[in-house]
Amino acid sequence: MSLHGKRKEIYKYEAPWTVYAMNWSVRPDKRFRLALGSFVEEYNNKVQLVGLEEESSEFVCRNTFDHPYPTTKIMWIPDTKGVYPDLLATSGDYLRIWRVGNDTETRLECLLNNNKNSDFCAPLTSFDWNEVDPNLLGTSSIDTTCTIWGLETGQVLGRVNLVSGHVKTQLIAHDKEVVILDVRVPCTPVARLNNHRACVNGIAWAPHSSCHICTAADDHQALIWDIQQMPRAIEDPILAYTAEGEINNVQWASTQPDWIAICYNNCLEILRV
């Protein structure tokens, strides 16, 4: 019986440590595979690759490998057709690219470091992988620089220094409130989402709709909003889910828009929406 035949609404996985970073695989043959990163306050941390078994409808750990420091972000290569090697990127002290073989073996493909002439390492706060050209990745650093990398050569292709350390975006999570901006007129918010009662930790746009967004917070709530009525006030979410702990992260599956993943404490849950 297939997963969709059983119509289960929630699947849960418990890791042996607090989960922080996570990401969905987008390969067509790995529809329910996610990567999870530990948050342990010491040098030795872990990354796990987990998958949902069709027969048992349970998550199982396929592979665990060591990672220096907690991962600030994890991302699978944006390869929806499965034509590139099965790669996984992580950020922390450096940007690392890992090659995955049959889910059970993972080896370090390359380490991208733009501080080779210095003993100082400015930790990376985040990164993104170019969906049009998977050879390109961009990283953001705690030292307020953004760097563009070429994966094939491992070379820096460009670097930007941010004077204020801030970038104008369409979404800003400020404590308990989420502010939505029109980047053409960034000084005036077009909407404010303020139903959370504790710090907002994660935001995810719907991959199939420009009018839907999911927010997650320390109040245990994951809320889905319909913002198509902007600039009229948006008072309440259209869906709400209460987890058993403070939600650290939320990811909307880009190739499976019916599914959202959240993590809290040592748990991963995927929710059908």
Rank of each mutant, 00 (worst) to 15 (best):
I97T: 08
R107K: 09
T188N: 08
N130G: 04
A191R: 10
S25E: 08
L95I: 14
L136Q: 14
N195V: 09
D128C: 15
N23V: 01
I234N: 04
Y11L: 05
N44I: 10
T71M: 12
T144Y: 14
V47I: 15
Q256Y: 05
I238H: 02
A261K: 02
G150F: 11
T18M: 11
I142R: 06
N115R: 11
R96S: 07
T106W: 01
W205T: 02
G5E: 14
E14S: 09
M22W: 02
A240H: 06
Y20S: 09
V185K: 15
E58P: 00
I74Q: 05
V273F: 08
A35F: 01
E53T: 07
I172M: 11
G158K: 11
S2Q: 08
V190W: 03
N23H: 12
T90V: 12
V47Y: 07
G158V: 03
F39D: 10
A122F: 14
S91W: 04
H196Q: 04
L88I: 09
I262L: 03
A240S: 15
R33Q: 11
A233K: 10
N201D: 02
P85Q: 08
D103T: 08
A216W: 01
S140K: 01
P123D: 03
S118E: 11
V47M: 09
E14D: 09
I227G: 08
D219P: 04
W24H: 05
Y84S: 04
D133T: 13
P237M: 06
E55Y: 04
D93P: 00
R107F: 13
I224Y: 02
W76Y: 14
M230R: 15
M230I: 15
K176G: 03
D86R: 03
Q228C: 10
I148Y: 05
V179T: 12
V156P: 05
I227H: 09
F59L: 03
T64K: 03
L271H: 05
D128N: 13
W98Q: 05
E244H: 10
L34I: 09
S140H: 03
L181F: 13
L268C: 08
K176N: 13
V200G: 01
D119K: 10
L52I: 03
E109S: 07
N45R: 05
P186V: 05
L151V: 12
L52A: 06
W17N: 02
P257D: 07
I10D: 04
T188M: 09
L181H: 13
S118N: 14
D93L: 14
E244Q: 13
K116C: 07
L34Y: 02
S25R: 00
D128T: 15
D175G: 01
I247A: 02
I142G: 00
Y43E: 13
M75P: 00
I172N: 14
W149H: 08
V167Q: 14
V40D: 03
Y43H: 09
A35E: 07
D236P: 00
L95P: 06
